[in-house]
Design a protein around this nucleic acid. Structure first.
Lengths: 262, 262
DNA sequence: TTTTTCTTGCAAAATATTCCACAATCTGTC
DNA sequence: GACAGATTGTGGAATATTTTGCAAGAAAAA
């Protein structure tokens, strides 16, 4: 890869994710941190980037309405780890349903070019992939739920009920040994349609969701094939889930000291 | 293979891949690295290439970017004027279908809180309203067309065919006395579904669209109830449209000093 | 403080430039 | 038409330049 091409890929990548760490960029373009630093300096001089501590950010004046999904959340590093671990479960050329929600958003950020087809009802996720022309992104229609940027309503349910996908990557409000629950009643019907449409179900739940039931029941535990969580998830509950035959993947705690392992 | 033929193949290849390393080009045209270097030097002098360290790149600056923003650089002030004038036509509590495209996007910017319901298949428009919780924004589903951020495909057509709205605000590629045309064949079916779904049809077309037919015919002239354009639209064509009973609104030329309108 | 990130300098690798030898084609002369 | 010399195209090698990756110290954040 030429230097020009590398810089171009950095720009394109940033267009998608808005902000990226040096390590992230380094992995993405297969170059050392030093090279990324130099590239970013050049690109910053050219215009469209702004370097920050630890990475670079796009200088688009039109602020993304849903930037909150990337930043304003709790347990960001845990969700990052979950996102990385969950994305690793997806094979190339699979069709993937992506739920709305911050945790799943982090999965989307790591999906890169793994999946051939992505189906979602989340505007932030759609925006993330909007300029990626190697993937086919299908957006379920519906009414925009303002605060979350999620598409809801009967149109959304109908869209999912007509689709089939290899995998669904889901979020939820809480999980106990009695089942998986969600707080947004509006989303329950949609999530159930997702569950029906996918062959394999992966739930991404950070540790705060464990042992905490939400208002509306979503599905039985055994509906989930795999659950991805972070290292702070309570041991006994994880063991209980495994005893029921559910694969539980505990994302390693922020492996910062990663050199070239991409 | 002659030298000319080789150079032509280099150019053609670069048109496809945008970037190419010397080694890549060498393999592709079956010549030594030295020869490639010389060819690139010649081609660079001729114009359409730029040599870089390790290879060459095409001098088309924008291929991978979000074409929506790139296209938006033309006739911005005209489109702003059209947007303002067209938004003024919309009464409160109407349901409005918004087409994709830059001109209609400017209408959307001025709609503020006039309409109660907005239906669109444009991702940029959806993002614009996504945080406005006084309006109901309905996004038609579909496959994201990367360069334009438009939702396309049968899902989109179906979504529109099931809806009804008071007004549709449309864009197009060109208008002549023979009819209205659009360059994106992919969008034709969707636009026709919009036309069917709306009681009143407003076309927003800046002056560059006048007298210029595009590839695909969209609809007859009399399908349009109102056409909004800017003050540079050719007089005779405007008169011709009015003679056919179409209301033509010419947006006043924007003052140089722009108010806070966005 | 401690940790992380940035800058700077340096050596190694990759790449560009220049030069030279060889082959093919063209040119003019015999 | 055949030949020697000139011209051009090609591939390779030697040398200069740029780029890259690493590491140590400086600066910034936590």
């Amino acid at each position: 890869m030429t230097a020009e091409e590398r810089k171009h890929r950095i720009e394109t990548y940033l267009q998608r994710v808005e902000f990226a760490s040096l390590e992230e960029l380094s992995r993405h373009v297969n170059a050392s941190i030093s090279t990324i630093r130099r590239d970013l300096t050049t690109l910053e001089a050219a215009g469209n980037l702004r370097r920050t501590h630890g990475g670079a950010r796009l200088v688009t004046p039109k602020t993304d309405e849903f930037a909150f999904t990337a930043r304003d959340t709790h347990q960001v590093s845990e969700k990052e780890a979950i996102g990385k671990a969950c994305a690793a479960l997806i094979d190339a050329n699979q069709s993937v349903i992506l739920d709305a929600g911050t945790t799943v958003y982090h999965v989307a950020r790591h999906l890169e070019e793994r999946a051939l087809q992505i189906v979602t009802n989340s505007l932030p996720v759609a925006n993330l992939f909007a300029s990626a022309n190697k993937m086919e992104i299908i957006l379920a229609g519906g009414v925009i739920y303002p605060r979350l940027g999620v598409l809801v309503g009967p149109m959304t349910v109908e869209a999912y009920s007509k689709l089939r996908a290899s995998v669904a990557i889901m979020g939820a409000g809480g999980i106990t040994l009695e089942g998986i629950t969600n707080s947004h009643a509006l989303l329950i019907d949609i999530q159930r349609a997702m569950l029906k449409a996918a062959q394999k179900i992966i739930f991404c739940l950070d540790h705060t969701k464990f042992g905490r039931p939400s208002v509306s029941p979503l599905c039985e535990l055994d509906r989930a094939d795999t659950i991805v969580t972070d290292s702070h998830a309570p041991q006994e509950l994880v063991a209980g889930l495994r005893a029921r035959g559910i694969e539980v993947i505990v994302a390693p705690e922020t492996p910062d000291r990663l050199d070239n392992c991409g």
